[in-house]
Design a protein around this nucleic acid. Structure first.
Lengths: 112, 112
DNA sequence: ATCGTTCATCGTCGATAAACGATGAAACCT
DNA sequence: AGGTTTCATCGTTTATCGACGATGAACGAT
């Protein structure tokens, strides 16, 4: 599935800061719930609000954070703005974490 | 590879809070560097300090956070405390993230 | 016994995050 | 036109984070 060439781990590892930033966006229960809620479809803000019992302004803020992290795509439609998961970006984060784990465990088997 | 039964996603998903907490521990560049540094072996604090150019107290703090998140094992040896990655825990986090991604992308293919 | 190392903890400070209510813009409905 | 709905932003408050120096404990070496 991962279309990354194993020869250039740089594109996976990225800078620690880069990965850290995206993980920071994921490191809040509400935002994880939002992602689950978004699922594959696109939702408007209100829909998420109804699901979360947080103030609308708070949810909007969380959505903004996810958008700024590049994990969610945002289309400011008229009244009902559309929020939609950026699956590729999310998959990239997952890959980064996997890469991290592997790089940490690699020594054991002397994989290099 | 994953020895989780797909029938009980609860053990993967855990609570959002649980996952979020572990991700929070990973969401700092210094801590990612520390994990990379730890690799498979066990290091003492000073070793990490030398690698990071941060104050010793700061590094100790970061290590503590990683330990509290359950991602690093800590053995308060005499003078040179040993820090070692908990590979299983780290792998579990990776699995959680993967699960999240999949659950978010599943709708597209109607995988359920 | 005394020094030098290594390390964890404490207290502090500035910066950032999290949450909320209030406000105003934009669009829809009647 | 007038009311309603949806949403983003602003301003505020409280809490937590990140980093540091200082301190003291435990140990090894001399």
């Amino acid at each position: 599935m991962k279309s990354f060439s194993p020869a250039s781990p740089a594109c996976l590892a990225a800078s620690s800061e880069d990965v850290a930033q995206k993980l920071a966006a994921l490191s809040h229960p509400a935002r994880l719930e939002i992602l689950r809620r978004l699922g594959g479809r696109s939702c408007c803000c209100k829909e998420v609000v109804a699901h979360l019992d947080l103030a609308q302004s708070t949810v909007s803020q969380h959505l903004k954070i996810l958008v700024e992290a590049g994990l969610v795509r945002y289309e400011p439609e008229r009244q009902r703005s559309r929020y939609q998961i950026d699956q590729a970006a999310l998959a990239a984060v997952s890959a980064s974490v996997s890469a991290l784990v592997e790089s940490c465990c690699a020594v054991e088997g002397a994989d290099v």
